[in-house]
């Protein structure tokens, strides 16, 4: 296993390099002068030149690239244009909230999605199946901010089960958990939809396989056959889907944080956009890039856990 982990980590280096380069290029190939975008077109030439120096834009492009990469390697994301605080500090301050939310959504997605998908496949065309199909259609259709607003209106404003103003940083763990429920449900909804779909179609295929019939013929209880024989073979596609949509989850976390007014990377992105703080925005993109590469590594490592054949390849 250790060799597998090390190999996977080494493989991530070129990906990370490519992704970081993409961020660098994207922020710089854009037509127009970023100093005009930041200061407005009324700014004096002197002010713009000063800003260009501050951003390091007056250096040759290759030197900028070397600066960018070496800063990231040392864990330095630069300083915010608007507050002049180190970006890495700002990010680290809110990162735990985003991680907490994403993990909670992941749990919601698998804990609800897997049983729903299995149930739907077991009762094909039955009530559970129809429910699962309608639910997953709704799940993939809801933009995260629309479902967030509806959840907020129904469960926080009308029913008053959960706080409207999120207290994600409350010291009281119960209060903190209560503040997490609606955002996690909102973010998890999409995951539930995808996990249900892939579990259902995987189980339908697995249940029609010969080994399932053999196991049944041996007289094993149906329950055992479903969970120990068929379900184990559906784990790989489930992990694939969860890993694939972890990226989507990171994007949707932004919206969930805005709607539920939670601290996190999403709120920081909005601040960066409102303040035209391009340094902060670039830093946040770097953090997202890291998160996605990390998510991919974790997905691959999970393959090794659920399917022993992967490790030996």
């Amino acid at each position: 296993m250790l060799r597998f982990v090390i190999k996977r980590l080494i493989l991530a280096i070129p990906t990370l390099w490519a992704v970081l380069t993409t961020v660098f290029v994207l922020v710089r190939v854009v037509p127009g002068d970023p100093t005009i975008a930041i200061l407005g077109d009324q700014a004096s030439e002197g002010a713009r030149a000063e800003l260009r120096d501050k951003l390091g834009l007056s250096k040759p492009i290759l030197a900028q690239y070397v600066d960018f990469m070496s800063q990231i390697l040392t864990g330095d994301l630069g300083r915010s244009l608007s507050t002049n605080r180190p970006i890495a500090d700002d990010v680290l301050a809110v990162l735990p909230y985003t991680i907490e939310l994403t993990l909670a959504a992941l749990v919601v997605g698998t804990v609800l999605g897997v049983p729903l998908g299995v149930l739907a496949a077991k009762n094909r065309n039955g009530f559970a199946d129809w429910f699962a199909r309608i639910f997953s259609l709704a799940g993939v259709s809801f933009p995260a901010f629309v479902s967030g607003i509806l959840l907020l209106l129904v469960f926080a404003v009308e029913l008053r089960w959960f706080p409207v103003i999120s207290s994600a940083n409350a010291a009281d763990p119960v209060e903190r958990l209560r503040a997490l429920v609606l955002p996690a449900l909102n973010l998890g909804l999409l995951m539930v939809a995808y996990v249900t779909r892939v579990t259902r179609s995987g189980m339908l295929k697995a249940l029609s396989e010969d080994y399932v019939r053999t196991a049944r013929a041996k007289g094993l209880p149906y329950r055992t056959v479903v969970w120990r024989h068929a379900f184990r073979n559906v784990l790989v596609p489930i992990v694939t889907v969860v890993g694939l949509y972890l990226g989507v989850l990171i994007g949707n976390a932004v919206l969930t944080e805005i709607v539920f007014n939670r601290p996190g990377i999403g709120k920081l992105i909005v601040t960066a956009l409102n303040q035209r703080d391009y340094s902060l925005l670039q830093g946040l993109m770097v953090v997202s890039a890291f998160a996605i590469v990390l998510a991919n590594i974790l997905t691959d490592l999970t393959y090794g856990l659920v399917d022993p054949r992967v490790k030996t390849q």
Partner: peptide, 24 residues
């Protein structure tokens, strides 16, 4: 293929957001 893989590793929303933010 290499370029596609890198671009696909960005969440679609984050990518769109970055592009609109820098393009205006």
């Amino acid at each position: 293929v290499a370029a596609t893989d890198v671009l696909l590793s960005f969440p679609q929303l984050i990518m769109g957001l970055l592009l609109v933010a820098v393009l205006g």
